[in-house]
Design a protein around this nucleic acid. Structure first.
Lengths: 222, 222
DNA sequence: TGTACATCAGTGAACGCGCGTTCACTGATGTAC
DNA sequence: TGTACATCAGTGAACGCGCGTTCACTGATGTAC
């Protein structure tokens, strides 16, 4: 069943959806072959060439779309969390981990598997600036959330950017390891521990009860 | 040039060396093909079957060897760092990051690329216990280093295992992102920041000057 | 001491497979006159 | 209004390639008698 005239670009979306499904199902970049994508969405393999010049550009577009979705979900979670900066930062962090938890294989592919920066840059499919910019948008959300905590006096950080990068790196480490070793006995409240310590969140009278991991002691009274 | 009689197992080492070289050179699991390994070490492809039953077992053995090297380097660094528990923990953390920095592609393959736990377990090439045990040895070194800090009063941690896992996860995140985005402007002293905060290292009269990132304030006087 | 033989270490040719990509095409849909 | 034609969206067959793996083999090396 063909798309109607002028609606040919709908197949492009189908191709990206098929590629994402393959990543989620198999967790392997190499499973996303031109022919496998074509099978997944029920078209002939050469039909793809109307929308993508080659296989690598499918992978790149899939990863770009995944990064855009990640950024969007971080922003939505932040907005939904209300106005308290600490709560917003925790919501962003939780959303980051949730994104990876719900699509572990795609997450794994986003960072290093499917999308080899050097390869794509070398092939000219993407500039180096674009390559770095991919993860940058999501990072920016975290940086701004930490900065808001500092501005509100909820964080003791004297280097919001550095601390936000530390937090991002730690969240990534947790998200990635969870994807790779799903059944590892992760300690209770490890995510909150990372947020609390790396963003240097402080007890604040106006804030919610800070989420503390068990055995972490009481927050200092104000 | 054949190996002498009884020395056939030397080829096994050559195969693993060739596989590791391919990983380091290309950074891609899929580049480690039977034929590519054979080319790399100058033998005919079928010769490999005397030492490995199939391609997957080469990848698995390569990753197992890499994990053993990682653990060994952590232990060496710890021993070389002397007796102060804080210095030993910092040395272990630095060694972890150095391992990844010197072999970024192999590190990336160790965690998720080349070695897909589920795949290897499903194929029966390795038990689930062995799969988890791979990273476990390196983690144990970190856990013990944190525990030593707590015992010496250099760490305020009330949950050494949980905090060690947090630290490990964060170190992994940094190591992995550095391998994937090598030119990212990583903040000054980010590694020390992770160690200091996640292991809850404290100022200690007998310890070295703690390594603080710029702008992190002074340690509290004892 | 010689010699027949088993074993070891590794090879060359071949197989069937799925891959990315190219090519000439088909048929439906819109448009100029 | 009809009709010729351009364009769009997608197809089927075919190509050359590298892959994992199998097979029968080669020749050197050690060993039993």
């Amino acid at each position: 069943v063909k798309n109607r005239r002028g609606e040919g670009s709908r197949l492009r979306e189908d191709i990206l959806r098929g590629a994402a499904e393959l990543l989620d199902q198999t967790g392997q970049e190499q499973a996303v072959t031109l022919r496998a994508v074509a099978r997944q969405i029920g078209i002939a393999a050469p039909s793809i060439y109307g929308h993508f010049p080659n296989r690598e550009s499918i992978l790149l577009a899939t990863v770009q779309q995944a990064f855009a979705e990640l950024t969007e979900q971080l922003q939505c979670a932040q907005t939904a969390a209300g106005t308290d900066p600490g709560a917003r930062l925790r919501a962003v962090s939780a959303a980051y981990l949730d994104f990876a938890r719900l699509r572990p294989q795609r997450y794994r592919a986003m960072f290093g598997g499917a999308w080899d920066t050097t390869g794509a840059v070398r092939a000219g499919a993407v500039s180096y600036a674009e390559a770095v910019a991919l993860g940058q948008d999501a990072l920016t959300v975290i940086v701004e959330a930490v900065r808001a905590c500092v501005d509100a006096g909820d964080s003791a950080s004297t280097d919001p950017v550095g601390d936000a990068v530390s937090l991002w790196v730690a969240l990534h480490g947790l998200a990635h390891q969870r994807a790779v070793i799903p059944n590892f006995p992760w300690p209770e409240g490890i995510a909150d521990r990372l947020v609390q310590r790396l963003a240097q969140l402080q007890w604040h009278a106006a804030a919610h009860e800070p989420v503390m991991a068990p055995g972490q002691g009481e927050p200092p009274t104000p």
